[in-house]
Write a protein that binds this DNA or RNA. Structure first.
Lengths: 116, 116
DNA sequence: CCCGTTTAATACGGCCCCGAAACGAGTTTG
DNA sequence: CAAACTCGTTTCGGGGCCGTATTAAACGGG
């Protein structure tokens, strides 16, 4: 059963969700960072910088920098691939998994509270 | 009828939506800017800087700067309130209304395509 | 074994945003 | 009317992200 959402409901949902993100004071993730983070947690590993850059349609430095900043927040981690040491494998963290869950719960809750 | 959205579906929805925002290349709005823009278009006027700052839980300069940048994109406009010239009234624009509609349509479409 | 290719990271110059504090104009109050 | 208050903006010092171009390390075919 597909999720049915009228455009007017969708607008309110985006509004409530953005507002919740802003108000909860957590470090602000950009759209890019959210897309990267959720890709890492939704799609099966392994993840490499080049794949993420291609999937998001951005340049590789964008991914490197996003991993730098999200790494500082302990939302993802990196390690060299020993089989091909040019590669970097991006890994999940406990804190990142919790952050992803929080995002899902937050949106599901906002959707639940939408007026008909 | 409330919108029913399981957390796992919500995560995928946020992912697809963020990805669509990143990929379409339009000037990137931050969470704050999206929250401000949608508040202006969802809630009844008049809107003042102080109200938006209070509703979003941010300082007034944040609102001023967001209005500056969104004004440059012609998504909102401002004028002095002649009845109390300290006040600034924030107004909608045609381009802003279209951008809001686009956001709603984008999310509704992503929701429609969610697997059950 | 060398040289072209691939990979991620870094350097660069530019632009935008942050919160706190100070500011200028306008209004209200005593 | 002068002092206090309100409102939005600007200033200040600091930080982050952007894309392009370049770099350094590692791989691999000839």
């Amino acid at each position: 059963m597909a999720v049915v959402l009228r455009p007017a409901q969708a607008i309110k949902l985006v509004h409530d969700f953005s507002l919740a993100l802003v108000r909860d004071g957590e470090p602000d993730l950009s759209s890019r960072q959210i897309a990267i983070l959720l890709t890492i947690y939704l799609e099966p590993p392994p993840h490499h910088v080049r794949d993420l850059a291609r999937k998001l349609g951005v340049t590789k430095p964008v991914i490197t920098r996003a991993l730098d900043s999200m790494g500082k927040l302990d939302l993802v981690s990196r390690r060299r691939d020993e089989r091909d040491r040019r590669d970097v494998v991006i890994q999940r963290t406990v804190k990142g998994a919790l952050a992803v869950e929080r995002i899902g719960d937050l949106l599901a809750e906002q959707a639940q509270q939408l007026p008909p």
